[in-house]
């Protein structure tokens, strides 16, 4: 039986002085909807080992990474293979409370962009102010990169996780490589 295939399988990662671009395939991703003021939100935070980030545009790391997507919406990102367990853990934590839990693991893939030129590279196609003062580690945003919609999360050391819809992944990869030509 054939192996599962990630959207950027077959694309060579880029590793150069000052710039790294690589896909991190098959991450577990669960979309979570809950009233942030509800007891369920607190219970979900307990289940994830970190309170659901309440500040817009931030993410936090617990047992999984929890990214703020909207005032009642988060994306929970964990290591590969954990969707079913995570989904049931969240549903159990919510109990009778009304929350939305949706496995979206294959909806997007993750591209890590790192290195000292990562901000320069992303600035070619991202209108957000990515200056460390404005978009330092712990910040995240849904926005556009080139002509694709992405979830962008800033990590330590100038590294960014770029979560892109699977169907746009090949386009975005080609765009990133073209824009990176200057830094390679």
């Amino acid at each position: 039986m054939a192996e599962r295939v990630s959207p950027l399988a077959g694309f060579e990662p880029v590793s150069a002085e000052g710039l790294r671009i690589a896909e991190v395939p098959f991450l577990t991703q669960v979309n979570l909807r809950a009233d942030p003021e509800s007891p369920a939100a607190a219970a979900l935070g307990d289940a994830l080992g970190v309170p659901l980030p309440a500040e817009p545009g931030t993410w936090a790391r617990g047992d999984a990474d929890v990214l703020w997507l909207g005032p009642d919406e988060w994306l929970v990102v964990g290591p590969p293979g954990g969707a079913a367990e995570l989904e049931s853990r969240l549903r159990k934590a919510a109990g009778e409370a009304r929350v939305g839990v949706t496995d979206v693991s294959a909806q997007r893939t993750t591209v890590l962009v790192g290195g000292s030129r990562s901000r320069d590279l992303l600035a070619h196609g991202c209108a957000l102010d990515l200056h460390p003062r404005m978009f330092g580690p712990g910040r995240c945003a849904q926005t556009s990169l080139a002509r694709a919609q992405v979830v962008l999360a800033a990590r330590e050391g100038g590294e960014f996780a770029v979560l892109v819809r699977s169907s746009f992944a090949a386009y975005l990869w080609a765009w990133l490589l073209d824009a990176a030509a200057e830094y390679l």
Partner: peptide, 10 residues
Amino acid sequence: PWCGPRDEAE
């Protein structure tokens, strides 16, 4: 009101 100022294109 949630994300702060963003470009019109969004």
